[in-house]
């Protein structure tokens, strides 16, 4: 057998051997066996010196071709084996993606806080300040400066927790109207503020009454503030908190600190305005009280009611939350059952 025949044989037979190898280790020893220093190709190249000089270049070329072919066959086989191994590993690593995710600790804001924050953000965006006042108030601010003198019949409407004759738990956030009106410097621009907070009434706690609840007061005083501005502002609140498909209607009402006074109703959530038991078949649900600030309130706070005027409104986040989420017992807000608190996603 000529040297060339030998090489040809190797090329034929060993290529098949390479293809038959099933693990990387064996492939590696085969590579050493075939292509190493003691391998047949190296041997053949060494034996080349015995060939006539004119045959050497062609033989040399041929030997290199064989070596390259074997080399590439080995590499191909190596890739195949690696891939197969990886696939095997991946298959063995398969997990049940339906198992639960690992819990992480995350708390939630109280549902009433969510509503208060939403209202605050809405009004901050419209250039209002947010102010908070004392929860223990003077009778003077809570009542007298709100145009409710001592023997005013409307005081019956608000049962009050008194601490002394002159000091009480505020029954409304309205005293912040008087407090800010007293302080505001109108030469520096209009007064636009909201005041959220906790208020207290001498009530027995039951599904619809709580001795503690929340209010958000709002007031805008300037030279050209109108009832139409109030209407537009109230519509905005309704749309922000409940959505654009809700309409509001204003009805005449009575509050000692506003004149004209209105109550605002919103389209019933439950029936969309068609009428149902929730809205007593009117299609409307009362959500807040408002009006044009009574000249007495302005004058008592030292503001010239001939020049300045504006609107005020007061709304109840507890009531909003009850309506929005269908909560049927106001006490839920203050008992803090974790199963209740965690029901309201932060996205509102």
């Amino acid at each position: 057998m000529t040297l060339r025949d030998q090489l040809e044989k190797i090329r034929q037979e060993r290529k098949q051997d390479i293809k038959d190898v099933v693990d990387l280790k064996k492939l590696d020893s085969l590579r050493v066996e075939l292509l190493g220093k003691k391998g047949p190709i190296t041997q053949a190249l060494r034996g080349m010196r015995d060939l006539p000089a004119d045959e050497r270049p062609t033989f040399g070329q041929f030997a290199n071709t064989v070596r390259d072919e074997l080399q590439s066959a080995i590499e191909t086989r190596r890739d195949e084996l690696k891939k197969a191994m990886l696939n095997k590993q991946l298959a063995s690593e398969k997990i049940d993606v339906t198992l639960p995710g690992k819990p992480v600790a995350q708390g939630q804001p109280h549902v009433i806080q969510q509503i208060v924050d939403q209202i605050e953000d809405l009004f901050i965006g419209m250039g209002y300040q947010v102010l908070s006042g004392p929860e223990v108030e003077e009778d003077k601010y809570n009542f007298e400066m709100m145009n409710l003198p001592k023997d005013h019949p409307a005081r019956d409407m608000q049962d009050t927790f008194y601490i002394t004759k002159e000091i009480l738990m505020r029954t409304q956030t309205s005293p912040m109207q008087a407090r800010t009106l007293e302080k505001h410097d109108f030469s520096k621009g209009p007064l636009k503020m909201i005041s959220p907070g906790v208020v207290y009434r001498r009530d027995t706690d039951d599904p619809t009454h709580s001795h503690q609840f929340h209010q958000v007061e709002g007031i805008v005083i300037d030279k050209h503030i109108t009832m139409a501005d109030l209407k537009g502002t109230l519509e905005l609140i309704a749309h922000e908190l409940f959505g654009n498909r809700f309409n509001i209607r204003l009805r005449p009402s009575y509050f000692p600190f506003t004149e004209p006074s209105v109550e605002a109703d919103i389209t019933c959530f439950n029936c969309g305005g068609k009428g149902c038991a929730v809205c007593k078949y009117t299609g409307w649900i009362e959500v807040l009280g408002a009006g044009m600030v009574h000249p007495n309130v302005l004058e008592m706070a030292g503001v010239d009611s001939e020049v300045y005027g504006g609107f005020a409104f007061g709304l109840g986040p507890d009531r909003f939350a009850m309506l929005k989420y269908g909560v049927d017992d106001i006490r839920n807000f203050y008992l803090n059952d974790v199963r209740f608190l965690t029901q309201f996603s932060k996205k509102g």
Binding site: E120, G125, G127, P190, K223, A228
Partner: peptide, 20 residues
């Protein structure tokens, strides 16, 4: 009729609203 009253927003000098 309150229904007949237009809906607007307060106009006048700009005020800045921000949390303290």
């Amino acid at each position: 009729g309150y229904d007949e009253i237009p809906s607007t927003l307060p106009s006048g000098p700009t005020t800045v609203g921000a949390l303290t």
